[in-house]
Design a protein around this nucleic acid. Structure first.
Lengths: 140, 140
DNA sequence: CTATTAATGCAACTTACTTGCAATTGCAAC
DNA sequence: GTTGCAATTGCAAGTAAGTTGCATTAATAG
């Protein structure tokens, strides 16, 4: 049983229903390498002939977020973007020219730094975001 | 001559005009410790009885951005926020409960990491953002 | 098959931001 | 001080992302 199916089975066991849009959206997020905005998700659904109202798309995103299947990423363009909940914490290279997004991993130095800062500032971190904006190989 | 005035004098020498709203907005950004959204800026203007149309606020933000007096920060809440162009690069602690923002500085480990990543990915960075979201001392 | 209630669609609304255009105004030259 | 140019502004209307209330539909348990 694939990851998509095991997530869907988990939903069902909790009393949530397996609708066509839910199945399609989970599958899209799990197979997408790049983070998706609500609008991008909607157009991917159209491509595979799953016609869903935008309200449903937003509600499904909220649902998947609450179920920790996806997480929200903070980019600076006024659009919220989401990606499948990462097993490994990582960050992004966002090309300001072609909008492409690559995932990268960092070494441990940031975590140390983070702990220190949190202690000094008496701040309890829920999440952090580190995103690089610039030009990808193609666009330089 | 203060920083605000020298910036304003610079505008004038380039043929831009010193209007009441421009003067007030530059002063607000230079004196604000926390980054401001367009809406927040507008309400600060109201407080000091400088009544400006929101269109003007957005246009002035664009202008100050193009003049590198302020820069845009990437937060994930659907609102663009701006702060005075920083002499020293720094990052932010954003409280998800009360929306307060604190500025922090990091040690050099991130820069090293950044150079490595850029080389490996053949990516040319324009800027990076590192923001921590969580709960401030008051809100815990 | 039926009942329950999760999920959906629709329309109207909100918020952040933008655009076109006519009116205003800073300021430099006279 | 008056004049003229173009930078700046306000207004109204528009766009795009996201939200809400409510009536309807449909997935699933019994």
């Amino acid at each position: 049983m694939g990851l998509t199916n095991s997530i869907l089975a988990g939903f069902q066991s909790k009393g949530y229903r397996l609708t066509a849009s839910r199945k399609a959206i989970v599958r899209i997020f799990l197979n997408s390498k790049a983070p998706l905005s609500a609008v991008e998700l909607n157009s991917r659904l159209k491509k595979i002939d799953v016609i869903v109202n935008k309200t449903t798309v937003y509600r499904e995103i909220d649902f998947l977020k609450s179920q920790k299947v996806i997480r929200e990423l903070p980019f600076g363009d006024g659009k919220k973007r989401y990606e499948k909940w990462p097993d490994n914490h990582h960050h992004h290279l966002v090309c300001i020219s072609c909008d492409s997004i690559e995932c990268i991993e960092l070494t441990g130095c940031l975590e140390k730094e983070e702990k220190k800062i949190m202690k000094e500032n008496n701040f309890k971190t829920i999440k952090h975001s580190l995103e690089f904006q610039g030009l990808c190989a193609k666009c330089q």
